[in-house]
Design a protein around this nucleic acid. Structure first.
Lengths: 194, 194
DNA sequence: ACGCAACTGTAGCACCTGCTACATTGCCGG
DNA sequence: CCGGCAATGTAGCAGGTGCTACAGTTGCGT
């Protein structure tokens, strides 16, 4: 059915645009009318193409996470785990990826008490993201056996860093913290390999 | 003036109670009427004793952070940095302190885009919290010189862990991650001391 | 005892929220 | 050319938001 295809296309296009908006303006206070107005549509349309706000949010979470992972997988393999962590952090503080991870942090905060669709979306995103992190570490010299542990530590610290980022962006303390994190992840990767 | 004292007392009492409510129900969707109803009052009263919702929120943030820090300072000094981290995490997943830190995470997420009073409240809370963390590490054998770096890494990872906590509470991966973190913080403490 | 000021209750405002009923458009197949 | 259906626009609903105007009520100091 051609119309169904078209419908799907429109829905996908809206999902991309709403995701752009959410990345820009944040997820927490998001409400339909402002985002619709920014896209040149009406809340009516969003609710037509998505079954409700929850559906929209879930789709946005999924879309943003796919972008995160695509960006992560596009990073070149580093020469060591330590370098990989530093490169990842550099990417995580620059435009696109930073916003995606900021969105993830917001979603995680919204899901802290188990509220849907945030909690479920975060759970799904986290799994795919961790898998991509593992691949990055392995590609940078970490053993497959040690990678999950190192990825876990890296992920946890990364999210915490994003929480602190607005407080100390560009400070020496932040950079030192990232360096310490890189050493720590490298140590875990090493230890697990032995 | 006695009345002024009373006023202050009432305000302080309300702050405590609203903080209790926020710790229970979360900070993100917080609105005046439900919390007032839960306290047996009306939104009118909250707005009388506080100059507005922002003032209330700022007070709640401050109150919760004071509780966090008091709890942190009540922890006994551990025999090593590693043990201190493990003990802190144990405390951070139990009742009172866990809720305080969850509230902090929510506030940090709300302040990600610079919105007040969240961003400012988080900034203030973070400073006091870090100072207390430093003291805890020093009391557990860390050198004063190395403590700030170790505390920074610990704090960042701790907040990230809280974001993931609902996803993997009680899993082996989480415990391993905490253990890895403890080693990493100990390593930083060691390295900085030398 | 009385006045004043702090305190609290009732109603209401203007605005926003997600969502829906209904009407309309425009395109595509027969 | 036209019937049907997906896509869209308009208007509105019920409920929630922070906040305020106004009217008491209480309790203290004089």
């Amino acid at each position: 059915m051609k119309t169904a295809a078209k419908d799907g296309e429109r829905r996908a296009q809206l999902a991309e645009e709403v995701t752009d908006y959410a990345l820009e303006h944040g997820l927490i206070g998001l409400s339909l009318r402002p985002v619709a107005a920014a896209l040149g549509t009406s809340d009516r349309m969003l609710l037509y193409h998505f079954s409700g706000k929850d559906d929209l949010i879930a789709t946005v979470l999924h879309t943003a996470n796919e972008r995160s992972i695509a960006h992560l997988r596009s990073l070149p393999a580093a020469s060591s785990v330590r370098e990989a962590v530093l490169a990842l952090w550099a990417a995580s503080t620059e435009g696109r990826l930073e916003r995606c991870q900021r969105l993830y942090v917001e979603a995680a905060a919204l899901g802290l008490l188990g509220r849907e669709p945030y909690a479920g979306g975060v759970r799904a995103s986290n799994q795919a993201w961790l898998a991509a992190l593992v691949d990055l570490l392995v590609a940078s010299g970490c053993s497959r056996a040690a990678a999950p542990r190192a990825a876990n530590l890296l992920d946890v610290a990364l999210m915490g860093l994003h929480l602190d980022l607005p407080l100390e962006r560009g400070t020496a303390a932040l950079e030192r913290c990232v360096a310490d994190l890189a050493d720590a992840v490298a140590a875990v990767a090493d230890q697990g390999s032995r």
